[in-house]
Structure formats: structure tokens, C-alpha cells
Design a protein around this nucleic acid. Structure first.
Length: 443
DNA sequence: TCTGGGGTCCTAGGACCC
DNA sequence: TCTGGGGTCCTAGGACCC
């Protein structure tokens, strides 16, 4: 038996904890550059704001409907998430943190009443971090996800499902008829693993609801679609196909990318951005104790500006030897950026990917097969470690970017002189992670 | 007219997730 | 004027092997 616990409108709810005047109002959280809506309060959903909808398309609702927008404050959300996850972990022997606002809990060995556990858990999260959640129970992870969807939808739209399924929903406790009614009342698009594309094709094949899908022939659908869909159907029928993953596996690739605040036309702007993104990616790499065997650099013009000539260079460079040293990684990506750059284009976004990741332990003390001069310029991973460790430690203690590489420091030193830097005009204070941004209580 | 029969590995692209 | 930023998995097709 599994549970899925999910915070309601996570980012908006985090903002509301510290700004209670936002409760009950239509609120959206904006992506970097205040470009698109990445979280919406229920009231904003009611106004018709869609997920990932460009801000400029809904901006008029500020005046006409009192819509409130804030810039994303990921430092705050990450910290709130960690606190929430720690509370949830108390309620089950095993937890899989699935995303910033969701975790699976494994109740296989637990004999107590699940609805009671679910209600206690919700109360604890609400009381201790102030976030509203919904809990779904099911005999497979896909059913737990579905139960969570039912719990949330029943709370938000009272006529969608029976009221007793709101907030905490255990699909395993339902009778066969009740379960069938839930399945019949849920569109396939709401299932975990069925996206827009597959849903469209299923609809064309006459499969509209979860009930239709559960009753369909798996072999036929596997042929027409793929094994992933087959597993989904089996899970909906109660056969577990997706395991719990309690220890997060190390990432297989690390990506840092960003849209620019305004377009970049010169090679130095691209180089600044690429070197900063590489530094950030290298920090993440060292955090999970891995080395990268290759780097990828890309930048692109805006596909939305159809009058602009388009150019989307993308270069992958294998490294002579896997490394986690920011200097070597930056050297590689900057060189790639200079080679790929063409003048005469309005670049709108750039990114750096670290690839062929491997555990750093594999390479410790390894002797070199090649003794050529190329390798002399790139010392073995173990010799580079102390400097990078010191840099990471300083940045952890004194805040991000306290110590940076020369090339990246050029970009961020002395205030924001970066031509490409992101716009974040509405960011709220980082209440829980910065001393100078804490809330002040006046008596 | 008719052009083998396996394998493996890699990559690009498409689908999905939040 | 203005359109997010991360990730994962699967599959098809090509290169290459004997």
C-alpha cells in the first residue's frame, strides 16, 4: 500500500505562509524573467489562468480581477519542501521524495487505519510548516497518484467526486462499484504517465475515461502505444510495476539553462552566461560526488520571434579525463561557445549540460594510460578536489557567489552589469534561509 | 527477377513528469 | 514588446561487428 502526499499549489502556498493577505486571492508565481505562470492558486485557476501560460497574456487580470503575481523564490520553496518532507517521513517506514512538493510513502507493513494516518499527517504539515496538502492511498504508485488527484479535485470542485474523498482518499477502501464510479468519472489525461499526446490518441481510439483504459486490451495497446502505457494499465488494475526508490539515484545529467532578460548579440555575453551556468552545474556535480565525462553547450534564438533569423547551435565536447573541476569545465564550455557563436542573431537563451556522469570514487588514484601533454594540462581529479571543496564550503557558509571563478566573477561582480541577467521584479524575501530577510514580528 | 543473419552500441528524438 | 527550467525513459535507426 502506497500513499502520495502532495502540497496544494505548492509555490503559492509557500508565499501565503509569510503573506497571509494572499489567502483567498487569485495568485500566480512567475518563472524566471517573469515570463510564464508556473503555479496558480485555486482562485487564479478559476480565472482561467493556465499552467505555463505567458504572463503577458493574463497580465490584464491584475487590473480587472485583482490577480496578484510574484516572481519565483526557489530558495524559499526548497527550504519549505525539506521541512515538509521531514514531517511526512515520520509517518511511514519508507519515503521516496518524488518532486519538490510530492512524496510517496510505503505503508506495506503498516496495519493501522490509513485514513486516520492521512488526516494526522495533513494536520502536522499544516501546523508545523503551514502548507496545505492532500493524501492519496492506493495499492500501486499509479493508484496512489490517482487517489491524490481525486482528493485534490474533490476538495476544489465539490460536484466532481463524493465529498468524503476530499483531502484524504483511499481507493483501496472503496467498494468495486464506488471504484468504478471514480474510474468512470476521471479522464485518461489525469493519469500519471498519460500526457497530452497519448491522451489525444487514446481519445481517438474511443478511450476517454480511466474505466475505458482499465477495461482495454493491454496487448493491443502495447502494440499501438508502448510498454510504458501497458505498465500504467497494469498498475491501475492493482499490479505493481513501479518500485519505490527510497535513495535518490545520482543524476545522469546535470543541466543549467536560462532565458535571458533581453537578447544577447555578442559573443562575450554568451561566454559570460555559459561560464556562470557551468560553475553552477559544477557545484551540483560535486554535491552528488560525480565527475563529468563530457559537456554540452547550447544557445538559441527565440522561436516565438518569427521575424528573427533562427540559430540554435549545440555542441558536445568529450573531456580528456572525467572531472568535477569548475576551471576545466568552464574552459571546455567557453571554448565550445566561442566556436559555435555566429554574429547577427538575437540569442534568447543558453544552457550547459554535464554528461557521462560517473561516481568520483571510480576515478580515485587511477593511473593514466596516456602520458601525453594534453593530460598534463588536466591534473587527475583527486588533485583538484581541495580547492573546489574550499570554494563550495565558503559559498555554503557565506552565500552563493561569495567566491567565484574569475570569468564568472566578471559577469556578476559589481552589481548586475550582465546584459543578459534575468528579470525578477517581484521576488519575495527568502524568509527561512537568509538572516537579513527574516520576517520581523512587532508587538 | 533474385542480394544473409544475426548481434551490439550509440544517438536523436519523442514522450512523459513536476 | 512579452512565452520556464529542470529531469527520466523508451524506441527507431544507423554504424559496425562476425
Amino acid at each position: 500500500m502506497f500513499a502520495l502526499v502532495d502540497a496544494n499549489n505548492m509555490y503559492v502556498s509557500c508565499e501565503r505562509v509569510f503573506a497571509p493577505q494572499l489567502v483567498g486571492k487569485p495568485v500566480v508565481v512567475l518563472s524566471s524573467n517573469d515570463g510564464a505562470c508556473i503555479a496558480r492558486s485555486n482562485e487564479a485557476k478559476e480565472l482561467g489562468v493556465e499552467m505555463a501560460q505567458p504572463w503577458f497574456q493574463v497580465r490584464h487580470l491584475e487590473r480587472t480581477s485583482g490577480l496578484i503575481a510574484v516572481s519565483a523564490n526557489f530558495e524559499l520553496y526548497g527550504d519549505m519542501s525539506a521541512r515538509m518532507m521531514a514531517i511526512e517521513a515520520r509517518y511511514a517506514p519508507r519515503q521516496e521524495i518524488y518532486s519538490i512538493d510530492e512524496s510517496f510513502l510505503d505503508f506495506t507493513e503498516v496495519r493501522d487505519d490509513l485514513l486516520t494516518i492521512g488526516r494526522d499527517l495533513r494536520r502536522a504539515v499544516r501546523r508545523e510548516v503551514g502548507l496545505p496538502t492532500c493524501v492519496g492511498f492506493g495499492s500501486t504508485k499509479t493508484l496512489a497518484k490517482l487517489a491524490n488527484h481525486v482528493a485534490k479535485t474533490a476538495e476544489r470542485k465539490p460536484d466532481s467526486y463524493p465529498a468524503e474523498l476530499a483531502r484524504v482518499c483511499n481507493l483501496s477502501a472503496l467498494s468495486a462499484q464506488e471504484l468504478e464510479a471514480v474510474f468512470a468519472g476521471t479522464e485518461v489525461r489525469s493519469i500519471w504517465g498519460v500526457g497530452r499526446r497519448i491522451a489525444g490518441r487514446l481519445n481517438e481510439a474511443g478511450i476517454q475515461t480511466v474505466l475505458d483504459l482499465v477495461n482495454a486490451d493491454t496487448q493491443t495497446l502495447r502494440r499501438q502505444f508502448n510498454v510504458v502505457l501497458e505498465k500504467t494499465i497494469l498498475e491501475l488494475r492493482g499490479t505493481p510495476c513501479i518500485e519505490m526508490a527510497d535513495a535518490p539515484a545520482p543524476r545522469q545529467q546535470i543541466l543549467v539553462s536560462r532565458s535571458f532578460g533581453k537578447s544577447v548579440v555578442d559573443v562575450e555575453g554568451i561566454v559570460e552566461a555559459v561560464s556562470e551556468f557551468t560553475s553552477r552545474a559544477a557545484e551540483k556535480l560535486r554535491e552528488q560526488r560525480s565527475l563529468a565525462g563530457a559537456v554540452n553547450v547550447f544557445f538559441m534564438t527565440s522561436p516565438h520571434r518569427d521575424r528573427d533569423r533562427q540559430h540554435t547551435p549545440n555542441v558536445t565536447i568529450p573531456l580528456v579525463r572525467p572531472t568535477a573541476d569548475s576551471r576545466q569545465l568552464v574552459t571546455a564550455t567557453v571554448e565550445a561557445a566561442r566556436v559555435a557563436f555566429r554574429s547577427g542573431f538575437n540569442y534568447a537563451k543558453a544552457g550547459v549540460m554535464l554528461l557521462d556522469l560517473q561516481p568520483e570514487s571510480v576515478h580515485q588514484g587511477e593511473l593514466d594510460l596516456f602520458g601525453d601533454d594534453q593530460l598534463d594540462r588536466q591534473p587527475p581529479a583527486k588533485d583538484q578536489a581541495p580547492l573546489m571543496e574550499a570554494m563550495d564550503a565558503l559559498n555554503r557558509r557565506f552565500g552563493r557567489d561569495s567566491v567565484t571563478l574569475g570569468s564568472a566573477a566578471l559577469a556578476s561582480g559589481g552589481g548586475d552589469v550582465r546584459s543578459w541577467s534575468v528579470k525578477q521584479e517581484r521576488r519575495t524575501p527568502r524568509y527561512t534561509t537568509r538572516w537579513d530577510e527574516m520576517s520581523v514580528v512587532r508587538c
